[in-house]
């Protein structure tokens, strides 16, 4: 798969994230579309390319969303690296494997993103994890799996 369509998908996801995704927020928790798109493509690309995509789409997301510049790129880079490393020898995936990848990547992203942002706040690390990181990760996995289920299996089964 060429890198340009992936980059375009990430840009589209980042724009949708700040314009429409609040419509499906639950208890002020939103799924993160660029993260879901990234976690879908990372196992299909070399780790360094995945890292580059994660870093740049994180910067774009921070610029569009008004979050501190560097926060999403840091969190997405860690998520992409972990998922890329875990899946590097895989040749085929099924729903279960993709769910595991989504969960690993989402948890890494949400823990770092919220952990850094809430550093020193009243909520504390456990409160931040329970209030934002865990529900956010669960929502990301749910939406990721729904998107996967809507796509023909032949498109994503082979890595």
């Amino acid at each position: 798969m060429q890198i340009l369509p992936i980059a375009l998908a990430l840009i589209g996801a980042a724009i949708l994230q700040v314009t429409f995704v609040d419509l499906i927020s639950v208890f002020s928790i939103e799924p993160n579309l660029p993260l879901i798109v990234l976690l879908f493509f990372v196992p299909r690309r070399p780790i360094i390319e995945g890292l580059g995509l994660a870093f740049l789409s994180g910067l774009l997301l921070d610029l569009l969303a008004g979050s501190p510049l560097g926060l999403s790129s840091l969190s997405l880079s860690v998520a992409a690296f972990l998922v890329g490393a875990v899946s590097r020898d895989w040749v085929e995936v099924d729903y279960q494997k993709m769910a595991r990848l989504f969960l690993l990547g989402s948890l890494a992203f949400e823990v770092i993103f919220n952990g850094v942002y809430l550093l020193g706040s009243e909520l504390g690390p456990v409160g931040g994890f329970l209030r934002y990181a865990l529900p956010g990760a669960v929502y990301d996995v749910g939406i990721g799996m729904l998107i996967l289920a809507a796509l023909p299996r032949e498109w994503w089964r082979k890595i």
Binding site: E30, G66, R131
Partner: peptide
């Protein structure tokens, strides 16, 4: 634009 990503709460 709105951002409710995790604990970050901003609008544009």
């Amino acid at each position: 634009a709105k951002s409710l990503e995790g604990a970050v709460r901003t609008i544009t």
